[in-house]
Amino acid sequence: MEVLLSFLVGGLFAVGVYLMLRPHLIQFLIGFLVVGNAANLLIFTAGRLGSQFPPLVPPGGELLEPIANPLPQALILTAIVIGFGLAAFGIVLFFRAQQELGTLNGEAMPEQFETAPLPSLVDEPQTPQERVPA
């Protein structure tokens, strides 16, 4: 079962990395979600698959069955919540970026907004188009 899951993790990583390498930001975000799930499955697999009994003890009861490893579940829950928050923030960020910059192509977003030629090579006057920060 672990071997099967390992292949699944590998496949998900491949799909996710491919999507994350695309320039389109929505593809990137979907890729992030896929890779995030791959990482969560990886932790789950790393915790070993054994029993399917939940790690809960009834009041006054005792542990009879071997229980599932609860630690990976706690880790995954944390990672899912963080990933969810990041994805939500990413959607809003990309939405605003699209509104302001007019593109969802990460590579088309300029790195410098002030044109900055190298010093002391240019003599002609600059066009005063700079954006004075607040």
């Binding site: 994350m20 930001l25 990137f28 992030f32 890779v35 995030g36 791959a38 990482a39 990886l42 932790i43 790393a46 880790l75 990672a79 963080i82 990041l86 923030f89 990413g90 960020l93 990309f94 605003r96 970026a97 302001e100 910059l101 990460g106 977003m109 300029p110 790195e111 907004f113």
Partner: peptide, 23 residues
């Protein structure tokens, strides 16, 4: 926004790598 998109994307990538390494 333009800088933020890049910062966000790279940070996500490193977080995922870190998480996988921890796993």
């Amino acid at each position: 926004l333009s800088g933020g998109v890049k910062y966000f994307a790279v940070s996500l990538l490193s977080s995922i790598l870190f998480l996988s390494a921890v796993g």
